[in-house]
């Protein structure tokens, strides 16, 4: 069975390390915050000017002046700080954020990512995504492996306008966990009940099948 969004978030949460500063994109990446292992301490960065994003507020804590980059009302966590947008992106551009997890339409074996624009459809803007992929030390992409027609979204070369080049290191999909090394995706883990053959079939990019592809534990 393909992983659900929640299960993908659970798997991605294992990429978090003690002491990390992390930026989570909108969508599936946001769910990762629900599965931070109990034995580690991390801090979430929200690019609108908050380091130390906490959980959603209770009714009486709602504050119009305290939102995240998805424009949702939030709270602060212990040790939080506020700053302006240019400081926030200096933090990102300067490589201080340890890990960025974000969604994508397509990725390719050159490490390129396309996530902000589908020609012919309304373009709403890239927000902070281009800055994040250019600035983070480590980027993990969260996406479905194939589109609803079963066509691979993990390609030899992206077809959509790019968000950034040569930046993707790892991808967690609903079918697999793969790492990009020297221009090839290496299959590390597969979703329970999903065969290596199915993953091969749904991966257009060059794929290396490691000897022991383990089953993702949920």
């Amino acid at each position: 069975m393909a992983l659900t969004k929640e299960q993908m978030a659970q798997r991605m949460a294992r990429e978090l390390k003690d002491g990390y500063y992390v930026n989570l994109g909108i969508g599936i990446p946001t769910l990762v915050a629900n599965y931070v292992p109990k034995d580690i301490e991390i801090m979430l960065q929200s690019e609108n000017g908050l380091l130390g994003m906490g959980e959603f507020p209770s009714e009486d804590q709602v504050d119009a002046d305290l939102i995240n980059a998805g424009k949702q009302t939030v709270t602060t966590s212990t040790g939080a700080s506020f700053f302006d947008s240019s400081t926030s992106f200096a933090m990102i551009r300067g490589g201080h954020v340890d890990l960025t997890i974000l969604g994508a339409f397509e990725i390719d074996q050159k490490g390129n990512i396309a996530s902000w624009m589908i020609p012919g459809k309304l373009v709403k803007g890239m927000g902070g995504a281009m800055d994040l992929v250019a600035g983070a030390e480590n980027i993990i992409v969260a996406m479905t492996h194939a589109n609803k027609h079963g066509e691979s979204k993990i390609l030899k070369e992206c077809t959509l306008p790019l968000t950034g080049v040569n930046c993707v290191k790892k991808v967690v999909t609903d079918l697999a966990v793969m790492e990009l090394v020297d221009g090839k995706f290496h299959l590390l883990e597969r979703a329970p009940g999903v065969s290596v053959d199915e993953i091969k079939e749904k991966t257009q990019a060059d794929l290396v099948i490691n000897d022991n592809v383990i089953e993702i534990q949920i």
Binding site: S86, S88, F89, M130, G135, P161, N166
Partner: peptide
């Protein structure tokens, strides 16, 4: 459309009298 960090930095540069700056953001994109 302008990447958010580039937008913030362009505005900061405007206020600080810096005519231009280099950034990795957007390299290789439209």
């Amino acid at each position: 459309l302008t990447p958010q960090g580039t937008l913030a930095e362009k505005i900061r540069a405007t206020g600080a009298g810096i005519p231009a700056f280099y950034t990795a953001t957007g390299y290789g994109t439209k």
